[in-house]
Design a protein around this nucleic acid. Structure first.
Length: 279
DNA sequence: CCCCAGTCCTGCGGGC
DNA sequence: TGCCCGCAGGACTGGG
């Protein structure tokens, strides 16, 4: 569930580790099927121990630790992964630990209940191959409305499905796609090639506003309680959701129609049929 | 090329 | 009450 706002909140939470030196990396004790860590842990350790974390960034829904030797550690939380400085929610789902030299906090933890997340160490070439412009579109907070239109306007896909395509634009996931299309007043099932010219700036502006607000509230912690910030605290944006997971409740904008749930590409989409007309 | 369905994995909640 | 199944939706793969 972590999308751009949750990953950005995690990134800010661990940014205090910038400049620190790695003294160990290890898989933690965990009886479950091990998560994907590449390369093998002994090679991972050999290449990363002794390196300084020069920069802690984000690419789409991934955390990137830039090391002094230009290698990068890329942490991908996927559905249930958390990046933590504090004690994890449970010990049994703790997957990976980076130990740092010097003062507290001394450990960067990766916790993942479902185990779909990954931790990878990339050379500059591997990084470009995996996360470069061929694989990932511009960041959702940076892309212009013209660039968004150019990347999507010829597609016959539904706009909501297209916004989840990380090659088109990076960072939007299932929750915020519904939220931003509600703010933009665009029906999620509208084919991209049938959107009107004014819809693209509306979608881009809503995307930036929704994502920024969600970051300000430190992301959304859903009822399953999985997402937490780096200190294992809940986010707050779930209290401001316009449509997501609110099926049958009145629309917060028109205060008239009820929020509807539809399924697109096997995923739930939420919308208000009055505020988001089809065309 | 474009797009969809299936897969990975776990925990929770609805239904019987 | 207890059990089982389906759903949650990140990214990737294979096939139409």
């Amino acid at each position: 569930m972590p999308e751009l706002p949750e990953v950005e909140t995690m990134r800010r939470g661990i940014a205090v580790l910038t400049g620190r030196r790695i003294v160990d990396v290890r898989r933690t004790v965990c009886r479950r099927k091990p998560i994907t860590i590449t390369p093998r842990i002994d090679h991972f350790r050999r290449r990363s121990v002794g390196q300084v974390i020069d920069e802690i960034g984000r690419v789409g829904k991934r955390i990137v630790l830039q090391l002094g030797n230009n290698d990068r550690i890329v942490i991908e939380p996927r559905m249930t992964g958390l990046v933590l400085l504090a004690a994890p929610p449970t010990q049994q789902h703790l997957r990976f630990c980076i130990t740092l030299a010097g003062r507290q906090p001394r450990e960067l933890l990766f916790w993942d209940r479902r185990g779909l997340g990954t931790v990878r160490l990339f050379s500059p070439e591997e990084f470009t191959a995996a996360l470069g412009p061929d694989r990932l579109g511009p960041d959702a907070l940076q892309i212009s409305s013209d660039a968004l239109r150019e990347r999507l306007a010829s597609s016959r896909r539904a706009i909501k499905v297209a916004l989840l395509d990380q090659r088109a634009v990076a960072g939007v996931g299932n929750l915020y796609a519904s939220e931003l299309l509600h703010m933009a007043g665009v029906h999620p099932a509208t084919r991209c090639d049938r959107l009107r010219a004014k819809d693209w700036p509306a979608i881009q502006a809503a995307m930036v506003e929704i994502l920024r607000e969600a970051i300000r509230h430190e992301g959304s912690t859903l009822s399953d309680g999985t997402y937490r910030n780096a200190l294992n605290q809940d986010g707050g944006y779930q209290n401001y959701h316009r449509v997501y997971d609110r099926e049958g409740e009145p629309c917060t904008t028109c205060d008239d129609a009820l929020v509807t749930r539809i399924v697109q590409s096997q995923r739930s989409t939420f919308l208000c049929r009055k505020c988001q007309r089809r065309h």
